[in-house]
Design a protein around this nucleic acid. Structure first.
Lengths: 333, 333
DNA sequence: CTGAAAGCGCTTACAG
DNA sequence: CTGAAAGCGCTTACAG
């Protein structure tokens, strides 16, 4: 009846079942090459049940050298919708494989190996690239490193791409095919994650070059109707006029549609608009919104399989292939 | 040059600095009532730096009995936008206080004490209520229990409310004040989280009763323009007609606005619409969307302070008060 | 088939 | 001011 009751440990179970801790551990872990008579096994399991015994993960981790945890390290960006979906799906996928997801943020330039030493995860997933040296240290500690790469240029072993440059390029190509040769690009007026959307803009620039179009006219926007309206006016009044515009995401695309509306104009006649994220709201805008789907759930499943197979020692060369970003064509373009 | 290099431990640091592990620990933890000469302290810190020593959290957790972790247990619902915002903010708030956030889902009826035994968190936050017995077991293990309650009826110690019933009531009151006396309610056609939005509907029902209005006409909807359009037709054609409708969230509200549009009607003249979540998209719809803000970031801050103060032993009776849901009035109502 | 014992890497009473 | 030693709760070679 003390306040903080002592934990139930494997020793308590062992005593209750009339066996040793060793046997309890063998039963609970189904240790290979250990044969336990069914009668003993049942006695142990009954005692486990009776005492509501749950092994303490920290003790297990100390002994084995690592946790049953996957550490996801992401840059300190605001949590975009698509990333939230990805993390949520990843947590569920990992949980079904007996792993927990632990999320940490890091500043640009900050090494991730210290987090690995502290937390001793079974594997780590890094959003973006990891420096060679940093990666080496983590691998030497026996931790599997997977990367969720944000560009298409590298396709390293153990990497899944969520290529932002490809997104920018797809947006441009979509508009170009529809006859828009003078393009605008709406980006957030924030440098907190400028490094992120710069990848999209770079992809768009390269695509323009490849298609023989002039540079896109990049405009920084607050997420307000007023700012969107001003940007729209700038584009339609420039000469030659911008006729198609790429938005950083579906929220900005929605703002642009609203901006057009305040000017008595509309997409795609006055200005074609394409967003990113396949946000449900894009189905309900007037006109409905053409966008890019990054397939976050599928990417999550792919990452989970990559990690899980590396932990069980299977090769991860399987046939599975994470889908790349794809265009969802609707009426705004 | 072996493959999996041995970890750097406190003993390595001790040797390098010419002191004992004890001293290393005292320096790194700034242990109260231990006086360490500055010269020794510097030697230790230099060795820590030199060897890139990071203490292993599992060993620390085993010794202290708990991790520097806050476990958040949430029902197995799809991750709504507002919940993602809350979790993200909570993770950041806790991180700034030296705590990590660990998220686990649970099925209805599933106890959360086993998760606590396994993970040994410093505190646990439960979304929704926790059974008395379950709560007692966790408390006895010395773990602080905070609840993020979803209704307003209980205001237990260590609880923060995100009252869904209040949201339903606020929506109804907002419409009633504007002269809408026959109301509709659009809910998702999903029973995966029916228990969740039932709280909203109950709040709306009670408000109708309190205001002397008839029961709201609850309609289940897929998140499509077609379904929304059918629901709208049903409402406007019923007699007496429904003139104001409450949507489960801003996505459903957006669908309803689109449904109105396909019928050549619009809000609020033909049907007033109010959503929930203060989604940015609601600023860009035509008309812009009246909604409810749940202030997820503020709630997260409040939860983080509640937990942090309980861990440092301070009373959590502070002046801080999480803001309740509030109405954001725009043009759709 | 089973168990005594070592040891994972920390923290902390305790003795000096 | 400092360190030797115990111990947190597991897993796993090893001996029987």
């Amino acid at each position: 009846l003390t306040d903080a009751r002592r934990r139930v440990t494997a020793l308590d179970v062992a005593r209750a079942a009339g066996v040793s801790k060793t046997t309890v551990s063998y039963v609970l872990n189904d240790t290979p090459h250990q044969t336990i008579p069914d009668e003993t096994r049942q006695r142990v399991l009954a005692a486990v049940q009776e005492l509501s015994y749950i092994p303490m993960s920290a003790a297990r981790a100390l002994r084995r050298g690592h946790n049953d945890t996957v550490l996801l390290v992401m840059p300190d960006w605001p949590l975009a919708r698509v990333l939230a979906l990805l993390l949520d799906a990843l947590a569920i996928e990992l949980e079904s494989r007996g792993l927990s997801l632990m999320i940490r943020r890091h500043q640009p330039g900050q090494r991730i190996s210290p987090m690995c030493q502290e937390l001793a995860p079974a594997a780590v997933i890094a959003v973006g690239d990891v420096e060679e040296e940093d990666q080496r240290v983590i691998r030497e500690a026996g931790i599997f490193v997977a990367a969720a790469l944000l560009t298409s240029d590298s396709s390293a072993q153990g990497a899944v791409a969520i290529p932002q440059d490809v997104i920018g390029a797809l947006q441009v190509q979509h508009l170009a095919v529809r006859g828009h040769h003078r393009l605008g690009y709406a980006v957030p007026a924030s440098d907190r994650f400028a490094a992120f959307f710069a990848l999209r803009v770079d992809g768009a620039r390269r695509a323009c070059r490849d298609l023989g179009l002039s540079e896109p006219d990049v405009v920084e926007l607050d997420l307000t109707v007023e700012a969107a309206s001003a940007a729209v006016r700038r584009w339609v009044e420039s000469s030659p006029p911008v006729t198609g515009v790429v938005a950083y995401n579906d929220e900005f695309a929605g703002a642009l549609l609203a901006g057009l509306r305040t000017l008595g104009k509309s997409a795609p006649a006055d200005l074609a608009v394409i967003g990113v994220d396949n946000d449900p709201h894009g189905r309900f805008t007037a006109p409905s919104l053409t966008t890019i789907d990054q397939h976050p759930q599928e990417v999550a499943r792919h990452l989970a399989e990559l990690v899980a197979s590396s932990l069980t020692g299977e090769s991860a060369f399987g046939p599975l292939r994470a889908p790349g970003p794809s265009v969802i064509v609707r009426q705004s373009s």
